[in-house]
Amino acid sequence: GLTEEQKQEIREAFDLFDTDGSGTIDAKELKVAMRALGFEPKKEEIKKMISEIDKDGSGTIDFEEFLTMMTA
């Protein structure tokens, strides 16, 4: 499992990506986040990433899903 410290770091990354503070990361926010990390993702790639992570089919990534992605 994760230490509380690791969870906190992932939470901070999540909050950075969640620019509108909605508690979820949408495609637009993910794209901005990827760019910040030096990637140039295409729209299809973003969609694919979200569909792989987005277990509940909401079209957005919540913290639990993000946590799973970061620790996979």
Rank of each mutant, 00 (worst) to 15 (best):
M34R: 00
G1E: 06
L2Q: 03
P41Y: 15
F66V: 02
L67F: 06
T19N: 07
I61C: 02
K43C: 15
K48E: 03
K7E: 04
M69D: 00
K55T: 07
L2F: 10
K48F: 07
T19F: 12
S22Y: 02
I25N: 00
D15S: 10
L16W: 09
T19K: 12
T68Y: 10
F63M: 03
E4P: 14
M49A: 04
K28G: 05
I46Q: 03
A72K: 12
K43E: 15
R11Q: 05
K7M: 10
G38A: 03
K55F: 06
L16H: 10
L30E: 00
I53Y: 14
R35D: 08
M69G: 01
F39I: 07
Q8G: 04
K31M: 15
T19C: 13
G1W: 14
K43G: 14
Q8V: 06
F17E: 00
I10H: 03
T68C: 12
D18F: 06
A72M: 12
S51C: 12
D18Y: 03
M49H: 03
E9F: 12
I50Q: 03
L2E: 03
D56A: 08
I61A: 01
F63Q: 00
K42C: 15
A36V: 13
A13L: 13
I25Q: 00
K31C: 15
L37E: 03
I53M: 08
G38L: 02
D15F: 06
K48D: 08
S51K: 05
K47C: 15
Q6M: 05
S58V: 08
A72W: 13
L2H: 05
K31N: 11
E45H: 11
K43Y: 14
A27F: 14
S22Q: 02
F17Q: 03
A33R: 02
M70S: 01
E65P: 01
D18A: 04
K31T: 14
K42L: 12
A13W: 15
K28H: 11
S58M: 06
I25R: 00
I25F: 02
E40T: 11
M49V: 05
T68R: 11
I25C: 06
L2D: 02
D20K: 05
E4M: 10
D20L: 05
A36F: 11
D54P: 04
F14E: 00
Q6P: 01
G23L: 02
